[in-house]
Amino acid sequence: MEKSLIRPSFVTQFSCIGSDCEDSCCYGWNIIIDKQSYKKTLAHKELKSLAQTALKKVKKSEQQWAQMVLDSKGACGFLDDKQLCQIHAKAGEDLLSHTCKTYPRMSHMKDGDRYESLSLSCPEAARTILLKPDAFQFERMTVNHHRTFKATPIWAKKAHDYTIQLLLKPEQPIEHGLTAVGILMKTTERVANGELESSAIDDMFQQLLSLSNNGQLKQHFEGFNKDTEIHKMHAFTSMQLWLNTNKAGRGRSRFEQINQAICAMGDGDNKISMGRINQAWRDVALPALAEHQTLFSRYLFYYCYHMNFPQVDALTPSQAFRVMLLDFFMLRCYLAVIAAQKQGLSEHDIILCFQVYHTNRQHKANYSQYAVELLDKGQFEDLASILTLLA
């Protein structure tokens, strides 16, 4: 069966920088080893002795046969004194486990086609996706496989394509694009529930383009009630507290930089307000991001592609949109507090915020469910309320 492999140029541009990485994936992670890699490593004459102490059998499955033993600093036992992998150096890439060989490369299947991507939990991947030129050129290659697949509903295909077009509409503020996507998801959800025909998504998309062109979308966004600072602060602190709970071993020192910057936003009574964070966003972060004007449009394009929005986990289209808004909101808060602390934002600071957030997000297995519950409790239950996170 002929199918396609879709590969964005950020995947081909990516190259591991090894020991120069700010947050090496060889530290702080429970690296799982498949059975075949485990046996080959133990059989290798130059690695056998080291493997006996650097690997521990767990035998949960063929794919989770063993795991790396980390030293007191959280480092993989196969690293040499230059922080380079001895398996790679002595036996080549072929002997690496599947995890080590592929990370941060990822992929998902849709209608039998394979879509390749990278995880933002890797600093160099984040830099490539968010900052490098021409990162979003796509190539499509024909491949053959006989795997079965479940067809994507027409409502999901339309919603996915129209979301990207709305977010990337030239000279439109990203907040207005997100407002349009939120409105589109309300219609999409009704189609998914069988209340409307799929053509309703096409009609709404055209209406939203017209609203954007005549300025009514801007008025729609600016008309939302902005007096929600208490609720927004509750959403931010609740999510940050949860991310701090049982956080990933990898990158803890980098995550603490975010926590310290948040604490530094406190007033004389050590109280942190959304007003202070918003002011830091307007006065420091936004001017510092002037030379990276495509940062959030790149991020949201990646988000839709990587997450296969709006078919995210088991969420409804409206729930998927609300989670997207929460992610967007948290990243803006991170950038704001770091900008306030540093009195500006370097490229290093930008990558820190995105990579740290997505590292912790990735390691929360029930992230989407918790995010929806948090938003419900915080009275961000409908479109009008969730859009106030953009204010």
Rank of each mutant, 00 (worst) to 15 (best):
E291D: 15
F301Q: 05
A285E: 06
L289S: 10
A290I: 03
I262H: 01
I272S: 01
Y302I: 01
S253N: 11
S253I: 11
C263T: 12
Y305Q: 08
I277M: 09
H306W: 11
G249T: 08
G275E: 13
C304N: 12
R298C: 02
R252E: 11
M307R: 14
N259P: 00
Q279T: 15
M307G: 05
F296M: 14
A285L: 04
A264K: 12
P287V: 01
F296H: 12
S273K: 06
L300F: 12
F301A: 07
P287E: 02
I262P: 10
M274F: 15
R282I: 14
Q260W: 01
I262Q: 03
M307T: 13
Q293D: 15
R282Y: 15
N270Q: 11
G268R: 03
Y303L: 12
W281H: 10
Q260Y: 08
I258E: 02
S253P: 03
G268Q: 08
A261S: 15
A261F: 09
R282F: 13
G275W: 09
Q293I: 00
Q293S: 15
E291G: 13
N278S: 11
F255D: 02
A290K: 14
R252T: 11
A261L: 09
S297W: 01
E256S: 08
N259R: 04
W281N: 04
D267N: 15
F255V: 00
G249R: 07
P287Y: 01
F255W: 12
M274V: 02
L295S: 05
S297V: 11
V284H: 10
C263N: 06
C304E: 13
L295H: 05
G249V: 02
A264P: 07
I258D: 01
Y303F: 15
G275R: 09
Q279N: 13
Q279S: 13
G251D: 06
I277F: 12
G275T: 12
G268T: 07
R250L: 04
R276A: 14
C263H: 09
L295F: 14
N259A: 00
R254I: 06
V284G: 01
H306P: 08
Y305M: 04
V284A: 06
R254F: 10
D283V: 11
H306S: 13
F255E: 03
G268E: 13
A285G: 08
H306L: 04
L300W: 09
G268H: 10
G266N: 02
R276P: 00
L295Y: 07
A280M: 09
A285D: 09
R250E: 01
L286I: 15
G249K: 06
G251C: 06
L295E: 08
Y305G: 08
G275V: 04
G266D: 02
D267R: 02
N270I: 00
R252A: 02
A288W: 04
E291F: 10
N278Q: 11
S273I: 07
E256I: 07
Y299P: 06
K271C: 01
Y303K: 08
Y303T: 03
A285Q: 06
I277K: 08
I258V: 10
I258R: 04
N259Q: 11
A285S: 10
S297I: 06
A264S: 14
V284R: 08
G268Y: 10
R298P: 04
H306D: 13
M274K: 05
A288F: 05
R254K: 11
C263S: 07
L289F: 12
Y299S: 01
G275M: 02
G268N: 14
D283H: 08
C263L: 05
F296E: 04
L286F: 03
Q257S: 05
M274Q: 12
A290Q: 14
A288K: 03
S253C: 04
